[in-house]
């Protein structure tokens, strides 16, 4: 496996870019659906019959591992990055929905009381009080999910769902272990870079971090 094969660097970088795209688009798609749907699971806002059904659905989505979702979408839409993106989106949806409705339910009840007396519709209470109050959790969990999905997307290629995993499996099958090391090194560097970027974004956007005086 040592030394790494520099000749496959361009190929590995292209595949890695696809992995990042899968993780990014999948995370954004999952987030866009998770945010409104998680609100429907809030027991302090919506009737219990609705919240029970919605929570059961989230539980079902979350129970199935991302690799199984990838196999399902490879069968449904064929080999390639679209299957990987959809698998990441569905898994992200299931995970973020649970984290978000728990954060939403923890909103100070006095904030809700002060706005309920205005007779504002529930959706406006969500939009103007619950979401802003939960913004720290929303951002930090979204960043965590993106980091996690970068790693997940790498593995998804093993079942044909695109990205650098697909390249790695082809190196293993053709016994090109030096090339595999190159792909692994690129993946490691990317994960470290995303970790650093995510830490920087947290410091910039999430209150509570002590900023050094300029």
């Amino acid at each position: 496996m040592v030394p790494p094969n520099p000749e496959v660097a361009a190929e590995a970088a292209t595949a890695l870019a696809e992995t990042i795209q899968i993780a990014f688009v999948g995370t954004v798609l999952g987030f866009v659906f998770a945010l409104p749907f998680s609100a429907l699971a809030m027991r302090n806002i919506f009737p219990q019959i609705l919240t029970t059904v919605v929570r059961a659905f989230f539980g079902f989505v979350r129970t199935i591992p991302v690799l199984f979702w990838a196999v399902f979408f490879v069968i449904a839409v064929g080999l390639g990055p679209l299957a990987g993106t959809l698998a990441i989106a569905v898994y992200t949806f299931g995970y973020l929905s649970k984290i978000y409705y728990e954060a939403f339910e923890a909103t100070d009840p006095e904030i809700l009381d002060a706005i309920r007396v205005t007779k504002a519709p529930r959706i406006l209470i969500l939009r103007h009080a619950i979401i802003p109050e939960s913004m720290n959790t929303i951002i930090s969990q979204l960043l965590f999910m993106f980091e996690y999905n970068i790693r997940s997307s790498t593995v998804l290629g093993f079942v044909g769902a695109g990205g650098i995993g697909l390249l790695m499996i082809s190196y293993i099958e053709s016994l090109q272990y030096s090339s595999l090391t190159t792909a692994l090194l690129f993946t490691l560097l990317t994960v470290v870079a995303i970790d650093l970027l995510s830490g920087y974004l947290r410091k910039q956007f999430i209150p509570g971090f002590i900023q050094k005086p300029k």
Partner: peptide, 18 residues
Amino acid sequence: GLVKNLTAVQNVAHGALG
């Protein structure tokens, strides 16, 4: 019961949400 991430004036505007 103020929303900590919003400004004072945004919190006051909440009184008109209804």
